[in-house]
Design a protein around this nucleic acid. Structure first.
Length: 492
RNA sequence: GGCGCGGUACCCAAGUGGUAAGGGAGAGGUCUGCAAAACCUUUAUGCGCCGGUUCGAUCCCGGCCCGCGCCUCCA
């Protein structure tokens, strides 16, 4: 099914297809690793994950490049304060980033490109711009892009900068620019700063140049899709377009996708507002990784997402409903045959699910038919009108759902365990929810033993003892469900 | 000031020019030793407010109110 995706460049829904008819080449702006990623960052990465997963579910081959900005002013400053080389400083955050992506089950792109490993490509691009007269070197050795060289500047963000007077907002640090809006391609080092010796001089790359250089390195001068958070639209992406298209005289990305911001309690998340959360913070509070994932992707990417703790609780319960249903299907014993109505319901749900996603990745709309199918199937099972063939019709629908949403399999213990380990290692144990520590201390074997004891007590009609065990487990965050096929338990 | 977005039930949140998906929560019921899970019933004559277009508007147009984002580093 062809995805119709909003294209910032054209302002409309455009079909997203590989220009070469083979593989969809996409570039997504990744993190600047000067600190732990927060849920706002991860919303963007998760939405891009939804995109690539849907494309793959549709049978498309995807070549996805994600960059890691491992050199910039903040990194240099923070590393200097810590008294370590920038590579050492960023390593902890790069590692943490990948760990968080794994916790949130974000698929790994085909290529991860680190800025510090592509300095020659960036220098090459700057030389090319210089040769074309679009880049110039300032007295201190910094290089700037001459905005006047690219008349189409502003076409992505629809900004008309013609009225902007030169010098109206001159940054005092950048007095050497020819024009106030010219942006840095290469920054000359201040004393003691990390720098590279290159043919264009000593220094470090400006931010925008890395994405142009790396995207072209792996995807070619023109590629299919460029993604990022809405804040990157201007000036970052606009600058990428300017420098890339000036250098190649070819369109840079054909399609641009921008993920809207996540808000917390209706406000932009920021450290100073005190509403700033990382996935780790939430795991330590006792929220499951799968709930974080679902909460962050269940609102379509083009709408602002208002994050609240309630949204996590809601997501967690929704996941429980789906997981419980799947276990019921898997564990149930059904007679051979099938029910026409159920078969039809499954086919309809799958169709509606795929159509919703194909319509600009409307995840909220996509979930509805899946839940409707769950209810229909539960009802049929309750009434004994559900057959083995119906299960076979429904399981693929759940599989398609999970190919994108990826929350049905319970893999929540590991991210939580990792977060607790991290908290212990970094002196944050006080931030760990007490019930989480209690639950962690209870092994699966210990739970099984208590469940067995309770079952025995029930058989002896010693309900007081049975209930006592159930309550004890409940306090440790373990929920029991009696069923005809035996007792099921799960961690809350 | 410029650009843009949103205001749908108790909460979250889709959606369509023809009469409001889904999730969570609440209430009542079925089932159960009791629970849990599941199911059934129930919860917006209403989609910020006021006009207009239309046979008909939550959805189109205009005005207004409220909230938010970007325009500077930022996912």
């Amino acid at each position: 099914m062809t995805l119709r995706l909003y294209n910032t460049l054209t302002g409309q829904l455009d079909a997203l297809e590989p220009a070469d008819g083979k593989a969809l080449r996409m570039y997504a702006c990744g993190p600047t690793v000067y600190d732990y990623g927060h849920i706002g960052n991860f919303r963007t990465f998760l939405e891009v994950d939804v995109l690539r997963r849907f494309l793959r579910l549709s049978g498309m081959v995807v070549r996805h490049v994600k960059n890691i900005t491992d050199v910039d002013d903040k990194i240099i400053r923070n590393a200097a304060v810590a008294g370590v080389p920038i590579g050492e400083y960023t390593r902890q955050y790069v590692d943490a980033f990948f760990e968080d992506l794994e916790s949130l089950r974000v698929e790994r792109p085909e290529t991860i490109a680190r800025a510090t490993e592509h300095i020659p490509q960036m220098v090459g691009l700057i030389e090319k711009l210089a040769a074309a007269g679009a880049a110039y070197k300032a007295e201190d050795g910094s290089w700037y892009f001459r905005l006047a060289a690219f008349p189409e500047y502003g076409k992505l963000s629809k900004k008309d900068l013609s009225g902007m007077e030169d010098g109206a907002r001159v940054d005092v640090d950048e007095y050497e620019k020819d024009s106030a809006r010219d942006f840095a391609l290469w920054k000359a080092p201040k004393p003691g700063e990390t720098s590279w010796e290159t043919v264009i001089g000593s220094g470090r790359p400006g931010w925008h140049i890395e994405c142009s250089a790396m995207a072209m390195e792996y995807l070619g001068e023109t590629f299919d899709l460029h993604c990022g958070g809405e804040d990157l639209m201007f000036p970052h992406h606009e600058n990428e377009i300017a420098q890339s298209e000036t250098a190649t005289h070819k369109p840079f990305a054909r399609h641009w996708m921008h993920v809207r911001f996540l808000l917390v309690d209706g406000r932009k998340m920021s450290k100073s507002e005190g509403n700033f959360y990382t996935p780790r913070d939430l795991l330590l509070k006792g929220f499951k990784a799968s709930a974080i994932r679902l909460a962050l992707i269940s609102v379509p990417y083009r709408h602002p997402l208002n994050f609240t703790f309630d949204s996590l609780t809601d997501a967690s319960k929704a996941i429980d409903r789906l997981r419980t249903f799947r276990v019921r299907l898997a564990a149930g014993v059904f007679a051979a045959g099938e029910h026409p109505a159920m078969q039809e319901a499954a086919a309809k749900a799958r169709q509606e699910y795929l159509e919703a996603l194909a319509n600009d990745l409307n995840t909220a709309d996509a979930m509805a038919p899946v839940f409707e199918l769950v209810r229909a199937a539960n009802t049929a099972i309750d009434r004994g009108q559900f057959f083995a063939g119906d299960r076979e019709a429904i399981l693929p629908v759940l599989a398609d759902f999970d190919a994108v949403f990826d929350v049905l399999e319970d893999r929540d213990a590991e991210p939580t365990r990792r977060a607790i380990e991290w908290a212990k290692a970094t002196g944050r144990v006080s931030e760990v929810a007490p019930e989480l520590l209690a639950a962690q201390s209870l092994s699966d074997e210990a739970i099984e033993a208590l469940v067995a004891e309770r079952t025995a007590a029930k058989k002896a009609r010693n309900f007081a003892r049975a209930d006592a065990i159930r309550n004890e487990l409940a306090e440790m965050g373990v929920i029991l469900e009696d069923s005809r096929d035996g007792v099921r338990w799960k961690r809350k």
